[in-house]
């Protein structure tokens, strides 16, 4: 099993946000997590990637069978966990090329491999840029600086393509995207999908799931997964909203 989360409880500043969450993802699967705002979706992404300030008070996160709770964020990344940020961060003065090269080589160092040759790296970058249809000049610009909303999201998928993670978490990647950009992003994800990796797609709306077809859909509410199902569940949510879920759960 690629990811196995058991009875996870997560607090921020002493306030419990995730209250006993279970989720397992196998390689080759795409899981979508949906749910109303403020229900703990992004907190889940932060907990899996090891962000500072997200305290795991109970439960376990197993990645490829190993507990990752003591791992630093960079170790998790180098073991193949990737997060496409909801709000990608700007790093002035650091070119995308330099950033990507540093990241690639950090991973290679972690795996005891020599740094990638410049030529090989550039070739790979060209290839992956095409995948998400990003501007040739974009990689010379500083990381996310002055990027439009769409460019930032494409850039996340580009980085994902470069780093070839085993577990990719997409946190609201569709938010703020027009339909064309959405298609490009979805197309990138679909091309990267394989039998060797798994995706966790966090989204508020079901429209992204028209383009990235999930194997499983989970509905998250008040820090727990309250309902799981197939692709159909997303459509059901689209139709009925989230309100109807609350009642049986509350009862």
């Amino acid at each position: 099993m690629l990811l196995n989360i058991k009875d996870l409880h997560v607090s921020i500043d002493g306030k419990e946000i995730i209250k006993g969450l279970n989720l397992s993802i196998n390689k080759g699967e795409i899981h979508a997590i949906m749910g109303p705002n403020g229900t703990g979706k992004s907190t889940l992404a932060a907990a899996i990637t090891g962000r500072e300030g997200y305290e795991i008070t109970k439960g376990e996160i197993l990645y490829n069978g190993k507990s990752i709770l003591d791992w630093t964020p960079d170790q998790r990344a180098n073991e193949g966990v990737f997060l496409s940020f909801q709000y990608p961060i700007e790093i002035p003065g650091v070119s995308m090329t330099n950033f990507m090269r540093t990241a690639m080589n950090a991973k290679r160092e972690y795996k005891n491999l020599p740094p990638m040759q410049a030529g090989e790296f550039l070739k790979k970058m060209e290839e992956k840029k095409k995948l998400v249809d990003i501007n040739a000049k974009m990689t010379n610009r500083s990381v996310n600086e002055g990027f439009s909303g769409g460019e930032k999201k494409k850039n996340e998928i580009f980085q994902m393509a470069m780093l070839e993670p085993e577990l990719a978490i997409l946190d609201e990647t569709d938010s703020g995207l027009d339909i064309d950009a959405l298609k490009v992003v979805a197309n990138g994800v679909n091309q990267l999908k394989s039998e060797d990796n798994g995706f966790l797609v966090i989204t508020h709306y079901q429209r992204l799931l028209d383009y990235i077809i999930p194997d499983f859909v989970h509905v998250m509410f008040e820090g727990r997964i309250v309902k799981s199902g197939g692709k159909g569940l997303a459509l059901e949510l689209e139709e009925k909203g989230y309100e109807w879920l609350k009642e049986p759960y509350a009862g």
């Binding site: 960079d74 990344a77 790093i91 003065g93 950090a106 980085q159």
Partner: peptide, 29 residues
């Protein structure tokens, strides 16, 4: 910012290298 550091770390770059990278970017001019 914490955000910048976490962003770099999430891409596999350890804390020390992340800071080096951000500072060098800042001083690039």
């Amino acid at each position: 910012s914490d955000d910048q550091l976490f962003y770099c770390q999430q891409r596999g770059i350890d804390m020390e290298k992340s800071i080096g990278l951000i500072v060098n970017g800042y001083a690039k001019e």
